[in-house]
Amino acid sequence: MTPSAFWQQVRWVFTKDLRVEVRGGVTLRMATPFAALALLLAPLATGTDTALLRRIGPGMLWLVVILFGMTVTLRSGAREPGPVRDLLTLSGLDPAAGFLGRSLASAVLLFGVTLVLTPLMIVLYAPEGRPGWGWLALLAVAGVMALGLLGSLVATLVTGLRERTALGPLLAIPLAVPVLLATARGTDSAISQQGSLSWLLLLVAMNLALVIVGVLLAGPMDETTR
């Protein structure tokens, strides 16, 4: 397959996934409000100590994005019915292009969730300091991309299993620890004007590793989903 045909397939999967998601509306109508609810409930559990809330705000935001966002990603990755997967295979879809397209679409969805939740977090937790918005944007983009890649990789591993809704998060969340630390702690550093280069590089390394593994192993994994 030529590179241009490959990237055309990536784009096709990306737009298809986003379109299906927009029509289904689970992320927008259910997952995002649920995540917002979690942000509202956390202070009720910890007590409304203003100084404490100021400190934990950014961390809570990313914890919620990872826990709820990952379930959305895992769901959308494993959602396609078997006959549709057959159709895509017979249409000559390269499994690696499918993996990249799905990951990108998930990343965009997660970025959307983060965009909605960030103002809410600022209102509810009133974190102090003036953040470096450039760093925050870079961390967020690298973070949601890593989550998207991880989510669609794990989604393939649990495709077709009865236990997939419970098993997916157990497999994916431990591996998402670097994303939690880099985004939450990186946000801290950005707020205290320290720069977050090392955290960003860590996320870039994670993205690279997941892209390489995912692309190389997409074929063998795809063979097991029929």
């Binding site: 497999l171 620890v177 994670m206 593994v213």
Partner: peptide, 28 residues
């Protein structure tokens, strides 16, 4: 066969992620 392939893939994903997890916690 399905089990073997998927578990091998997960093992490899874990293998590349473990150093990244370790460093992130170390920096934390």
């Amino acid at each position: 066969r399905v089990r073997a392939v998927r578990c091998a893939v997960l093992g490899i994903v874990g293998f590349v992620q473990v150093p990244i997890v370790h460093y992130s916690v170390l920096w934390f």
